[in-house]
Design a protein around this nucleic acid. Structure first.
Lengths: 194, 194
DNA sequence: CGTACCGGACCGACCGGTCGGTTGGTAGTG
DNA sequence: CACTACCAACCGACCGGTCGGTCCGGTACG
């Protein structure tokens, strides 16, 4: 029973994300993909358009996920401090759930074609805009110190890099706490940060 | 006059760092290197042992630089707060000075052989130990809140990712200030952070 | 029977690396 | 000084292998 339908496609995406994360996109040959998925070339190319399109798909999936959940967080009727915390927790959780894809997201941007770069860049900007908004709102309400907004660019790196390099035995929640601990203290006004 | 001596070798390292940063290690062919350096294959391989050894050299150079300067900073007779600030400034300066090599450092770890991975990992650990030490000393002297030491793993990512993704027109000092601003507030005890 | 699915022979381009050979500058010798 | 010996620097044809991708002939399920 050769697992029909979308099932196969999901297997392809998962397996190649793992391979790309471990060996890099250009460092992973078709033949390795084939072995990992258990298909021949024809079978693989029945499901995907090209190796590069596959890479793009891998990179868009995780960023789209946090993009969606960040919208939900922003929409809630809570103060900026709570939202900031939620944004961080959500990001940590997303990375732990799909570390391979995030690793690829961190490392393989340059392997994308011009088209893919534009798309990824757009999503990235959109996501960082969510953080920016919370930072601005929090500063306006007095919850946060006036933060240099350039710092927002750093947040993604702060998370991705940490998760990618963490020993696998460290629980995701612990990493997130460690990061958010410094972040909250660094951003909130002294009276609130205690 | 065909530029003799070590000169050529330096040109090779610089040029390939730039190429690897832009297109990735596996994404850069020998022929592109050849064009960039202005050599034939034989000429190139007269100077280097292999493409991979070249990659290792590119990645070791920047980390060795900050490793050395961090030793000087640690040796100084100053308080932990000053050292932390100095560590950050030095790192930012190093990255701005050699952004291509740092970009490769961020992205191409997986392209290294087992041997190279070990070397890079060792340097990375050694460098992070410098930060760890300052954090511990500062906590002991009461300058810093007791920080989760796992956070140290995040610091490199905080810097590299920011510098690699920054629009080129942002001055390095500004990026460093933005990062260190949050970092110092996040780490120092409230009475000192104001 | 149609059609979704798949294997594998096959393609040209390009990969990193080797090798035999040329060249131009320099040091040694009488 | 002339002459030789030597060698770092360099070239580019060439190597076997692998790359991503195409295509065609099945096969088996609905």
């Amino acid at each position: 029973m050769p697992t029909r339908g979308e099932d196969t496609r999901a297997r392809i995406v998962t397996a190649s994300a793992a391979l790309f994360a471990r060996q890099g996109y250009h460092g992973t040959g078709l033949s390795e993909l084939l072995d990992a998925v258990g298909l021949g070339k024809g079978g693989l190319y029945h499901h995907i358009a090209s190796k590069e399109q596959l890479l793009l798909e891998i990179m868009l999936e995780p960023i789209d996920r946090v993009l969606a959940s960040s919208d939900r967080i922003l929409a809630a009727d809570t103060d900026a401090t709570t939202k900031l915390r939620a944004l961080g927790d959500d990001l940590g959780q997303a990375m732990a759930a799909d570390l391979s894809a995030w690793t690829v997201f961190l490392r393989e941007y340059s392997a994308l074609g011009q088209d893919g770069k534009t798309q990824v860049l757009g999503r990235r900007q959109a996501y960082l805009d969510r953080w920016r908004r919370v930072l601005i709102d929090g500063a306006a309400s007095g919850e946060f110190r006036p933060i240099d907004l350039a710092f927002v660019e750093s947040i993604l790196g702060l998370f991705i890099y940490t998760f990618v390099w963490a020993r696998d035995d460290t629980p995701a929640q612990e990493l997130t706490n460690s990061i958010m601990g410094v972040l909250m203290h660094g951003i909130c006004t002294p009276t609130r940060s205690a």
